[in-house]
């Protein structure tokens, strides 16, 4: 039983990070109907930048993460301006191709700058594990969970109540009509990309603290795909729930099934779930599939 809860806890924590990264993915999909296949590289770059600030420049963690967030926001703005803006009225497939190219470019650049070895974050969170009734939780996990949850709540409030949040949802709903309200579509797109980059970077920093950083971290961009397809590509709530489901399922598969089949199932398992769910609900668990008037 303790083993089960242990797996559950680590699934929830990893799942919460998936949820965060998936949020950025969904935002971009909602705004421009395009899958951002460079998402994994944003995660990786965020993680590397923060690591460099801490280890090379010896900055304190909080300052380092703050600079990382600003850097990521700027990276998002720049990508939007240089890659996406020229493709504003282009077909969706062109935009997706552009993000694939961008992802490859960024992956190459990170390889040139940071090489291929796994780098570890220095000890930031205390390492004495906390125990809850026999279940051992390392502080990194606990903190990751707290940070992610507060960010998710903050974003939910932002989208529900703030002027910019409502404008962003309006643009996602009907771009032309939003423009006729005087909402600046360019500004909304720019902010969308900035937010997507920022959440990806936070995910990267947290994952880096848990596992260390190397180029394979960008695979999360692919793992997040099942998450958003499961939750529904256009649903923020779906991204969050989907993140937890995939995280827990992956952790369970790793704990129980991997020893039986000799490993490797952990990485495939999310995709198996997605195929099963899509057979029943093609728009994902929370996807809109169009509101119909009756």
């Amino acid at each position: 039983m303790t083993f089960f809860i242990q797996m559950l806890v680590s699934g929830i924590v990893v799942g919460s990070i998936y949820a965060l990264v998936a949020l950025g993915f969904v935002l971009i999909y909602k705004a421009s109907d395009a899958l951002n296949l460079a998402n994994g590289e944003f995660v990786l770059i965020g993680s590397y930048v923060c690591l460099t600030l801490i280890t090379v420049l010896k900055l304190p963690f909080l300052l380092a993460i703050l600079i990382t967030l600003v850097f990521s926001a700027l990276l998002g703005l720049m990508v939007e301006k240089m890659v996406l803006r020229p493709l504003l009225n282009a077909p969706t497939i062109s935009v997706i191709m552009a993000t694939i190219g961008l992802g490859n470019l960024l992956a190459g650049l990170t390889h040139v700058v940071w090489g291929h070895q796994t780098r570890m974050y220095p000890q930031i969170f205390p390492d004495t594990p906390v125990t809850f009734g026999g279940v051992i939780i390392t502080p990194v996990y606990l903190w990751s969970f707290v940070i992610v949850m507060s960010l998710l709540i903050a974003f939910t409030v932002f989208f529900k109540f703030s002027k910019m949040g409502i404008a962003m949802r309006a643009v996602a709903d009907d771009l032309q009509a939003a423009a006729s309200m005087g909402i600046s579509v360019k500004k909304v797109f720019a902010i969308t990309w900035a937010i997507a980059c920022v959440v990806a970077a936070v995910g990267g920093v947290l994952l880096g603290n848990i596992n260390g950083v190397n180029a394979t971290m960008s695979v999360i961009g692919l793992t997040v795909l099942p998450v958003v397809i499961l939750g529904g590509l256009d649903s923020i709530a779906g991204a969050i729930v989907g993140g937890f489901i995939i995280g827990i399922a992956q952790s369970m598969a790793g704990g129980y099934l991997d020893p039986m089949v000799g490993g490797g199932l952990k990485d495939v398992f999310p995709f198996i779930i997605v195929i099963l769910i899509l057979m029943i609900k093609p728009y994902g668990l929370f996807g809109k599939g169009g509101v119909e008037r009756v």
Binding site: A170, D173, Q176, V291
Partner: peptide, 17 residues
């Protein structure tokens, strides 16, 4: 061209952008 997935009130807020 109302925003279908926004509530009536949110539509009005969007109008006041």
């Amino acid at each position: 061209r109302v925003f279908k997935h926004l509530t009536v009130e949110e539509n009005l807020i969007a109008g006041a952008h």
